[in-house]
Amino acid sequence: MGNAKSSALSKEILEELKLNTKFTEEELCQWYENFQTQCPSGRITPEEFEKIYERFFPESEAKAYAQHVFRSFDTNEDGTLDFKEYIIALHMTSSGTMSRKLEWAFSLFDVDKNGYITKAEVENICQAIFKLIPTEDQPKLPEDENTPEKRANKLWGYFEKSDNDRLVEGEFIKGVTDNENAMRLIHYSPINA
């Protein structure tokens, strides 16, 4: 039965995913079977992706963030995620190296996909991340992070750029790697009470 499932997934894609992720052939075939069950069309639409995120963040407004994540994963820019894009995204965000995760984070912040980040894009993503924070946790945030604007200003400050400067991928990765607080600000983690 396992062979029947692996034949449904093309050998080329299977081999490519085995080379580029830490998933085994058996895991990939299981993921593919689940993907086909959940997405019979073989593609995830932005709306379906938003529903997935809403299940992960039931106490939050996840739609804006989900839209940015979807955009960053839709590498062929066709408006859907196919199985390959889905698995690469899953690998990158769950078991990829820190370097790969930061490359993905850069693509998340590069809203217009032009190869660099502006302060306006940082503000855009910080707005979406802030909406993931449940309302009851927002008062627990440090004073200099308790609004999306303050978080964006704090994060942008770590890169030592003026408001009109641009940030390329290497600068982004270095700035985040060099500062633990910057790392914390580029994503949302629940506040521990």
Rank of each mutant, 00 (worst) to 15 (best):
A105M: 14
W156C: 05
A193R: 01
Y158A: 10
A120P: 00
L17G: 09
P142T: 03
F159I: 06
T147N: 13
F35T: 08
K5Q: 10
I125P: 12
L9P: 05
E26R: 00
M98C: 11
T80G: 00
N192E: 01
T118G: 07
N164W: 00
E143S: 08
E160V: 00
T97N: 09
G115K: 02
K174N: 08
L9M: 04
A152C: 12
L102G: 07
K51Y: 13
E171H: 04
P46H: 06
T135L: 06
D112N: 15
V69T: 09
R166K: 14
S7D: 13
D144V: 02
I88A: 14
Y158S: 06
N34I: 02
I52V: 14
K140V: 01
V122G: 07
R55F: 07
F35E: 14
D165P: 03
D163T: 09
D78P: 02
L81V: 07
K161W: 02
T45F: 02
K154T: 13
Q67G: 07
K150I: 03
Q36A: 14
F109C: 08
A152F: 09
S94C: 12
K11Q: 10
N164S: 15
F70P: 10
Y86L: 11
H187T: 12
F106P: 12
I117R: 09
I125A: 07
E149Y: 08
Q138W: 03
H91S: 15
L9E: 03
C126M: 11
K63C: 10
D110H: 07
N153C: 03
L155G: 10
E50L: 03
F106Y: 12
D110L: 02
C29W: 03
E85I: 06
L167F: 13
F56M: 14
F130R: 04
L167Q: 11
Y32P: 13
E25M: 02
V122K: 01
E54Y: 00
T75L: 02
P134Q: 09
S107R: 15
T80R: 09
L14M: 01
D165Q: 01
K22Y: 07
V168K: 02
T75A: 06
A182E: 11
E26A: 01
I186K: 09
Y86G: 05
S7W: 13
N153V: 01
K22I: 12
G79A: 12
K154R: 14
N34Q: 04
T37R: 08
C126V: 00
Y86R: 13
E33P: 03
I44S: 07
I13D: 15
S94A: 13
Y158W: 11
K84A: 14
E121R: 12
H68E: 12
K131H: 08
M98A: 14
Y116E: 05
G79W: 04
F109Y: 15
L108S: 14
V176G: 08
H187R: 03
T21S: 04
K140H: 05
I52Q: 10
W104Y: 15
E59A: 11
R151A: 11
A4Y: 13
M92K: 14
E59M: 07
T24A: 02
E103G: 08
